[in-house]
Design a protein around this nucleic acid. Structure first.
Lengths: 248, 248
DNA sequence: TTGAAAGCGCTACCAA
DNA sequence: TTGGTAGCGCTTTCAA
């Protein structure tokens, strides 16, 4: 049978509350006792049960990463990979683990029961594409912490992180301008979404800053995958004055 | 405050053990009681705490998927994506969740403490590339269930699943033969690993079955990524009698 | 500085 | 068919 905190207490001749304090390195315990108890722990190969700790502390020490496993494109990309690795690298050292939460069917109630209400995870990280104002509202109602990747237009009662899409697009556009390009197009990003409007505004800003005109047909939104990119580019190349370097 | 099993018991006028039985749909409870208790549960918006259940049942209801997050290539591919989705689709409905376990540094002891000994997960699923006989031995010593994807040569005290690499390679080779190809090469798979030997044996079998000779220089092992594939193919194309269709 | 005891919210055994 | 009760293995007051 697994050795528990009671076994350690007995073996070390202290109360289990003392063992618990040693476990958490409480300042009230003398160094001598700590050393002795720790010795016993390692002698007996003791590892505290995380589940018992979770119950006592009322926290699962689990962060949920919400994903829609049926959407392959959102899943199989560098970006998502970096998210997982990044999240793990900060929560791991803090004693938290990463639970992958499937939101396949977009059933909010199921989601709330399966992970939130039953305390399976302590908080969610999710891409804005999975978040609706209603869902955010559900989280807020039970005071459940969540963090969105990307902003949710029209809903401000939440935290989100993102790269500076406006600035990024501006820098990128400026870079091309400095290279001497004059007819610069912008493809991708879904219209209506902040990612599109922010990038487009940065793009426009750079153009205007350099006294260049904004050509409507050079700006085409579209879902970010290979097929759409390919199609948009073909459309672009068929425009009468097609985008090209100044000295082409 | 969160409503617990005690609140339900009180409100429904039954013992909490009865509520627990209703929760688990025990056959010993009368339909009438079940209905009544369930009504109270939904009236009070009750969701059982998964952590308490875990402690009482001594199971975390968590399956760990062991990955090395520093190995991008193993992570960002269709295969891995399918594993995650596949695993989730079977464990989810059974009440289990998927925990992504990072084995970045390949520290066995850390791994054992962080997930196994403290009961953070009930079992592991891992690719053979992460498994060593020593690690498998550690798992077995504490009777910890694990399932490998791919076989571990030289170690049999474990369960593993894999596709039939031998048969697959045989069918593939045969297919080419039927198309009329006569100089067929085989690239990829790491030498020494079952995936390579099994596929190669299927490849050879097909060739021999059709009275074709096996050319050593046509068989090149190599790590499965784009760069290696590219290089191997270039090498291949420079062989004196290079692989080609019969009627080229 | 240490210990006793009361939880945390369930399950499971044994009676009733 | 239901209830009482003793855990599961920790944490956390509150005393000593």
């Amino acid at each position: 049978m697994k050795v528990t905190i009671n076994d350690i207490a007995k073996a070390a001749g202290v109360a289990k509350s003392t063992v618990s304090k040693v476990l958490n390195d409480a300042p009230s315990i003398s160094l001598a006792t700590k050393r002795r108890v720790r010795q016993v722990m390692s002698d007996m190969n003791y590892t505290p049960s995380s589940i018992a700790t979770q119950l006592a502390r009322k926290s699962s020490f689990n962060i949920g990463l919400l994903v829609d496993m049926s959407r392959r494109d959102d899943f199989l990309n560098q970006f998502f990979y970096n998210i997982i690795g990044g999240v793990e690298s900060v929560i791991g050292p803090q004693g938290y683990e990463l639970t992958l939460c499937n939101m396949n069917n977009h059933d909010h109630e199921l989601l709330m029961n399966r992970f939130v209400l039953n305390k399976r995870v302590d908080g969610f990280i999710l891409d804005t594409s999975l978040l609706t104002p209603q869902l955010a509202e559900s989280f807020n109602q039970v005071q459940f912490p969540f963090l969105a990747i990307g902003e949710l237009p029209g809903y401000s009662e939440m935290s989100w992180v993102d790269i500076d899409n406006h600035k990024g697009a501006e820098l990128l556009t400026e870079h091309l301008i400095f290279q001497g390009y004059r007819r610069i197009a912008f493809l991708g990003g879904e219209s209506g979404e902040p990612i599109w409007s922010n990038r487009i505004s940065g793009y426009k800003k750079a153009l205007l800053n350099h006294s260049m005109s904004v050509v409507d047909s050079y700006m085409q939104p579209g879902y970010s995958n290979v097929e759409t990119g390919c199609k948009l580019m073909q459309d672009l190349l068929e425009l009468p004055p097609r985008p090209m370097p100044l000295y082409a």
